[in-house]
Simulated assay, not measured.
Amino acid sequence: MEQLLNQQKHIIDLAYGTAQKFILEGKPGKVIPAGLQALHFSICVYGSYSVDVIPAYLVLAEACIGADCLMQATTYLSQAQWIVLKTPDCSLAIQYKLHRDLGLLCAAKGNFEQSVYHLANDIYLASCEFGPNAIQTAGGYFHLANIFFRQNKMDIANSLYAEVTAIWHAFLMTSVQTQEQILKLQAEASPFDEDREVSKDHLTEAEQAETIQALNAILDFREQAPKQQPDETAKVLHSLAMLYYLSMDLSKAQEVGVKAFDLVNQLPQQESLEAIDHLLKLINSKPFYKT
């Protein structure tokens, strides 16, 4: 029985991971089979009304929203919402994700007022759980900015996109510094093995892909805006360069990093120039390779 339980949990992880991968690849139709497997085995292992079933409902709802099957998405989210309501001690980490998907569903239906309500709850709950400047909170700001952008409320969208960029920029600066320290320690311990990967970034592959999508969307907004804000554009480019570096896509990191450097070099205030130059040197040193 213990072996069977472990096998079922492994299937849940595999099916859920596969579903998330297809979500990020923009293939909602392929998410459904994997998501249903995750849901089936989650119910078998944890029971129909356990909060451990909610992630499967959420990934299925996201797939249905992507495939424009909004009625089915509503059904999945209603099931998840019912479980949360029946679980007074449900974690904030689950609740904020539920409100995020409810916000995305309302946006897909064109109900922007209700979407803003759910995304505001998403931001509040994520802030309570992780902090207002946490990367988990940044996702809510990003989706909320998209709603205001669709409503042509550009000043609000601009402010929220700037908040998202600031959160990610600060997180990635710290991550790059940590990575550099680890590489130095490894080089001192084994100078003949410099090119071996020595550390996994704190972000999962899915989180990296999702963040790259979000930052590229913000970059498009910045580059197409009637009123240019080159300092904000440079910050997005710098963030993307750091993210590509940490995910070991060095050629892309080099390309975006050079754009950031050239743009900052034209600004009156060049506070980030030194940091970008240092990042380019790290990229050119090739401490590890994209696999």
Rank of each mutant, 00 (worst) to 15 (best):
M1P: 05
M1A: 01
Q3R: 06
I11D: 02
I12Y: 07
D13C: 01
K21L: 03
F22S: 03
I23L: 12
G26I: 09
P28L: 13
G29L: 13
I32N: 06
G35W: 04
A38M: 04
L39K: 07
I43D: 05
C44E: 07
Y46F: 11
S50L: 09
D52P: 00
D52W: 03
V53W: 01
E62N: 02
C64M: 06
C64D: 07
G66K: 10
A67K: 14
D68W: 04
M71R: 04
M71T: 03
Q79H: 07
Q79G: 02
A80V: 08
Q81D: 14
T87D: 02
T87R: 10
T87N: 05
I94S: 01
Q95M: 15
K97E: 13
K97W: 14
L98I: 14
L104C: 09
F112K: 08
L119P: 11
N121G: 14
Y124C: 10
L125S: 13
A138H: 03
H143P: 00
H143R: 14
I147H: 12
I156G: 15
A157H: 03
N158Q: 10
N158Y: 15
L160K: 04
Y161T: 15
E163D: 13
V164M: 09
A166S: 05
A166G: 00
W168S: 03
W168A: 02
S175M: 03
Q177D: 08
T178D: 13
T178V: 14
T178N: 10
E180Y: 02
K184G: 05
L185V: 09
P191H: 09
F192C: 09
D193A: 08
D195F: 07
K200E: 15
H202R: 12
L203R: 06
E205H: 11
Q208T: 15
F221A: 05
P226M: 09
P226L: 11
K235H: 03
L237F: 00
Y244W: 11
S251E: 13
A253H: 05
Q254K: 01
E255P: 00
G257R: 03
G257A: 07
D262M: 07
N265M: 08
P268V: 02
Q270G: 00
D277G: 11
K281S: 05
I283Y: 01
S285G: 03
K286T: 04
Y289F: 12
